[in-house]
Design a protein around this nucleic acid. Structure first.
Lengths: 328, 328
DNA sequence: ATTATGTATGTAACGGGTTACACAAATAAA
DNA sequence: TTTATTTGTGTAACCCGTTACATACATAAT
């Protein structure tokens, strides 16, 4: 690999001049610049980013930490962040944490040691104390972590309320809720929204709320249990789409007809929901916009040290599909 | 951020001694070591990886380049690579290339400038010429790129043959094939396997082979066309599972009963296949093992400069599910 | 007693860039 | 003409580790 010195000697100038050409800074004579550029292309020289990073403490790298890369919601989010960061000349890297605080801190440590410029994080396990160890700009995405951290989320509670109201309007008389892990902020919000709408109903039972851990398998098992114990349930609001798919699977295995016997509505709006049969009605988050916005805020904070905490909350919309409306 | 100098002065030793403690190299008196370690924890010191990388040209970072992060096959693969590399003290990063040669080279450039130690790549677009620009160890995964590159793949042709034979054994009389993009090596192999089994059949028509570009949408559209033009088709071998899901969706929208009217078998064995209704019969690749093995080979090549090209080919197995067998 | 070996630690060069500073020549302003 | 400013380029320090080499003492071998 050629270095800046090789370029300098080939062009007959000092390394400083080469550096000035590279960074388009300071004064460089037009002809000299030409010579340097010629040398650069002759040698196929690429500046060593590690050396650059060492000097200026920046790496032009942004990382996204997600809890579960196998949940399609996160690849969709990642795509958005990737596109935006790339447009802004950052290298984007994706890290999977399993919502395991240890893996999380391990990545954060490793990334900081590599002088990562900023981190976007989807987490529910990280603590305030750990956050204080992070010296680079952070933006929380999808879940709120701390009050002094910028975040990009959606109106979870309102979305949940909307979902339940919609099921009611469809004529559902007994509506259950499959929720996520209880330590996740949006689990709480979506649950609150659900409760807002049902807690005063005469039919409501606390056993209508069961956790599915935001996972397909748990949700499927939980749903089977729920439906066997409560055959009267005719509507389910599911806290995310992956679990929604599990609910559909469980219901179908129990021989229920969707949406005739049971209406199901999810939350997220991942494209998977439209690929299955019956397709899944859902509360759609603007996933791409959220990822983009998070990246935008992060880059803003990287460039502007006197950042103010920004909390962006997106609206959600109902996406009506086959799991609630009769198929034509 | 404290540096090695801060640690050294706090412990009353030179930076060399601190470095020796950090790397457990050379001689260090036991008491001195203790003092240094105390200083390290007092200051909460973490060595700067960028400086390390600059000196020794290694970054302890391994990257995986995948063509489509939204296809669940790749997150599953990524999980395997991540787990193995992490166990071996590498930082793992995942990059999405869209099978776009430009994005691919951009990532490869950026990663090399960051002194990445090695790259695992799933690609069909990269050229021999571009591969020569890569100075770090590479392993090709899922698809073969060049004869002088280590690779981890599966027996695609045999798997395809197996799939078609199985459909025949089920009693399918007219078997079609939805294939991937023609420039991908495993598209060709799977197609060859299909042709091996059907080209001499009296019913075979070349229009029974259509491309689905390894994408859900294309596959769904292609399948609808196919089934409308050829209502006699009673079995489809689909070159990957994501397209298999699209085929099922298309067939269901056309009102066909699966598997009664149409049997469908995919290829990959992603967990999504088991989440949908009907679940998708498939030729299962040992995804996790493949990712692990690719990482293992890469690390081997990183550590051993006189590497020999290794080509590993895994067996595939038939995973029988509802899209071909009558549901109980 | 002399030499070889093992233990312990420090100094300084190095990796590949960036940039503060110095200096010189050319041009503009006083 | 003298002084100030702009243009152009080079030297060397710096970023933060690692390690070759030097040095010094203790112990073991000859």
């Amino acid at each position: 690999m050629p270095t800046i010195k090789d370029v300098a000697s080939l062009a007959g100038v000092s390394v400083a001049t080469v550096s000035r050409v590279l960074n388009d800074s300071g004064y460089v004579n037009h002809e000299t610049k030409q010579r340097v550029n010629d040398a650069i292309s002759t040698l196929n020289y690429r500046p060593n980013n590690v050396a650059r990073s060492l000097f200026n403490g920046r790496s032009q790298m942004i990382a996204l930490l997600v809890p579960d890369i196998m949940n399609p919601f996160f690849p969709e989010l990642a795509r958005a962040v990737e596109d935006f960061t790339k447009q802004n000349d950052y290298t984007f890297v994706l890290c999977n944490t399993d919502d395991d605080p240890e893996k999380e801190m391990h990545y954060i440590d490793a990334l900081q040691q590599k002088s990562v410029d900023g981190i976007i994080i989807v987490s529910s396990t990280i603590t305030e104390k750990e956050l204080n160890q992070v010296k680079v700009p952070i933006v929380a995405l999808d879940r709120i972590l701390s009050s002094n951290l910028s975040s990009v989320t959606v109106r979870n509670r309102e979305g949940a309320r909307h979902a339940v109201k919609y099921l009611k309007a469809l004529g559902c008389k007994r509506i259950a809720h499959i929720c996520g892990p209880e330590n996740v902020s949006n689990t709480k919000d979506r649950l609150s929204g659900y409760l807002d709408e049902v807690k005063d109903m005469d039919w409501f039972l606390s056993s209508y709320v069961v956790t599915g851990e935001y996972q397909f398998d748990s949700a499927m098992a939980a749903t089977k249990n729920l439906l066997i114990n409560h055959p009267e349930i005719d509507g389910i609001f599911v806290a995310n789409d992956v679990m929604g798919v599990g609910v559909l699977k469980a219901a179908q295995e129990l021989g229920l007809r969707i949406p005739k016997d049971l209406c199901v509505i999810g939350f997220d709006g991942i494209s998977l929901g439209d690929k299955i049969t019956p397709s899944l009605t859902t509360i759609k988050q603007p996933i791409y916009e959220m990822g983009t916005r998070a990246a935008e805020i992060l880059i803003q904070q990287i460039n502007d040290p006197v950042f103010t905490v920004q909390r962006e909350e997106f609206e959600v919309t109902l996406l009506e599909r086959e799991s609630t409306s009769v198929r034509r």
